[in-house]
Design a protein around this nucleic acid. Sequence first.
DNA 1: GTGCGGCATTGACTTAAGTTAAGAATGGCA
DNA 2: TGCCATTCTTAACTTAAGTCAATGCCGCAC
Lengths: 192, 192
Amino acid sequence: MKYMTNFTTLSEEQQQEISEGILIEEYKKGTHLIRQGDDPTIKCYFVLQGCVRQYTIDESGKEVTANFYTEEQAILTFTFQDLSQSSKYALTCLEDSIMVVGDFDTEKEMYNQYSELETMTRQMMEIYLGQAQNEFTAFISSTPEERYKSIMSKRPDLVTRVPQHQLASYLGITPESLSRIKKRMNQDKRRV
Amino acid sequence: MKYMTNFTTLSEEQQQEISEGILIEEYKKGTHLIRQGDDPTIKCYFVLQGCVRQYTIDESGKEVTANFYTEEQAILTFTFQDLSQSSKYALTCLEDSIMVVGDFDTEKEMYNQYSELETMTRQMMEIYLGQAQNEFTAFISSTPEERYKSIMSKRPDLVTRVPQHQLASYLGITPESLSRIKKRMNQDKRRV
DNA sequence: GTGCGGCATTGACTTAAGTTAAGAATGGCA
DNA sequence: TGCCATTCTTAACTTAAGTCAATGCCGCAC
């Protein structure tokens, strides 16, 4: 897979071998890959097509969207480390989706077989961690309106693909506020 | 080091060997470990004693605190991946501090020597990533006041160790707001 | 086709954060 | 010790987000 090539020094043949061990699955819209509180089915995904939402219901009963995953994004949620031994997040498909599915047991075997693969995973996680850091910092320092504008420019497809109230919960605001922000922005545009 | 034991299957002797290769440094309060825009000096730290602040100046000139690191915390900031080739964050000591300093070149050598070390690093990063995820989600769904209460309970030392305006910038609010939140909380307490 | 339920928008009202500015407290340093 | 700079608090005002409630709008099932 072309995605892999950027990260690794593995040979063509080795990449071929790994690719053959890979499992690709299709899921219908509305499918729960994992539910909150489930035993952690130690799995990870890579979205080839579709859209997956990661969310949690917090103590006060509010639903919080932690992320949306779309094409070419990996879903790595290491939530099971929590002593609780149950998943903190739920994953559901917002659309019919096609994904690469990996489970951590075969992953470990593969690490033994191809040590470069572990290096590659580590590097990917470093990048991930850096991105998470940057996103967090950006979130801290911005207002809801700025966050909406930011997502409009970085992931414009989300704004149309995803229900507004879920997008709002990802931006940390209420659906009403999101609605008003959009209204304000339209008015400003017209005025200019 | 006792911290390591929790993560690895390395033998005592091996841990001993690794520990000997480790560099420990002391820094005075106010020292910049790295400045924003510096060439990324590919280093990582582990705080034995003291307090380090990670921050960035954003486009609008506002200072944003991304994190505070205190005893027993590792500083892993993978910001250099940004094409920019310069560090997005600055790290400064808020107190006199003692830290383990690692640079990535010797780290790589050690990975070759002890492959378990890479596994250990990967596992630590998984946990890190999970924590970052959780912190982000918690941040999204909480008000400034809730965030302050949360930090009071999770890292009460920070509230006293760290300048208030820097704490405010970590909570995503202005110093004035933080001041008001504290005032409100005192009044509420007295009333009860 | 009709009706129902969930979703998006709008309005009125409350509340708290941002802004600006001023004063009080603190701490470092000569 | 005393001065200066920084930091923290307070106040008055503006603005936007939360809350509650009502309406309108699909989409889906029956």
